[in-house]
C-alpha cells in the first residue's frame, strides 16, 4: 500500500535552524581558535623538496631558508616531512646517509590540516598527536603552507594581547 500524499502546506517543514544557538565564546582568543581558519595563521613561506631528492638536498634547503622542517612533495602533494629531529635521530651521527634518498629518512604520510580548518584543530594535532610540523593543504590536497611551533605561538600571542 502506497503512502498517502497530501499537498505540502506552508509550515509543514520546520526550519532546521530554528533551534540553533550560535556558539558562545568566553573571549576573543577562543573565538579566533574556533571560528577562523588555518589560512589566517602565518603558514608561509614553505620550504619543500621533491621526493627524488637526497638527504643532502634536504639539509641544504633547510640551511638556506633557516627552517627546521621541509615538506617532501610529489607533484605538489605532501608525501613526507623531514625535520631537524630527523637530522638529530637519523643523519647527524652518520655522514654516509647524505647521498641517500630522502624517502628513506623522512616521516611518511604526515598529518595535515586544510587551510579551511579551524586553528583549534591544528592545536589539537600538535598537543594530542604530538606533531610539531603540520603541512597545510588547499581543497585540491596541494600543500600551501606549513604550521610549526614558532608560527603557532606567534598567532596565539597576536590574539592574546
Amino acid at each position: 500500500m502506497g503512502r498517502k500524499r497530501n499537498p505540502v502546506e506552508p509550515g509543514d517543514f520546520e526550519d532546521p535552524l530554528s533551534n540553533y544557538d550560535p556558539p558562545a565564546y568566553a573571549d576573543e582568543l577562543e573565538r579566533v581558535l574556533c571560528a577562523t581558519e588555518v589560512s589566517q595563521m602565518p603558514i608561509r613561506p614553505l620550504a619543500y623538496i621533491e621526493k627524488d631528492a637526497t638527504v643532502q638536498d634536504a639539509l641544504d634547503t633547510m640551511c638556506k631558508y633557516e627552517c627546521s622542517c621541509v615538506v617532501v612533495e610529489d607533484a605538489g602533494r605532501a608525501v613526507g616531512i623531514f625535520s631537524a629531529r630527523d637530522v638529530l635521530n637519523k643523519v647527524a651521527h652518520d655522514p654516509a646517509t647524505r647521498p641517500m634518498p630522502i624517502t628513506e629518512f623522512m616521516t611518511p604520510d604526515p598529518r595535515t590540516v586544510y587551510a579551511t580548518d579551524c586553528p583549534a584543530k591544528a592545536l589539537n594535532l600538535m598537543a594530542i598527536g604530538g606533531f610539531r610540523h603540520i603541512p597545510v593543504l588547499d581543497v585540491n590536497d596541494k600543500v600551501v603552507g606549513m604550521l610549526g611551533p614558532r608560527r603557532t605561538t606567534e598567532f596565539l600571542q597576536e590574539h592574546l594581547i
Binding site: E30, R111, V113, A120, N124, L125, A127, L137
Partner: peptide, 15 residues
C-alpha cells in the same frame, strides 16, 4: 588543550 577541552578536544584528528 586541557584548558580548552570543549572546542579543541572534539576536533577530529584527521582531515
Amino acid at each position: 588543550t586541557e584548558h580548552f577541552p570543549r572546542q579543541i578536544k572534539v576536533q577530529m584528528m584527521s582531515s
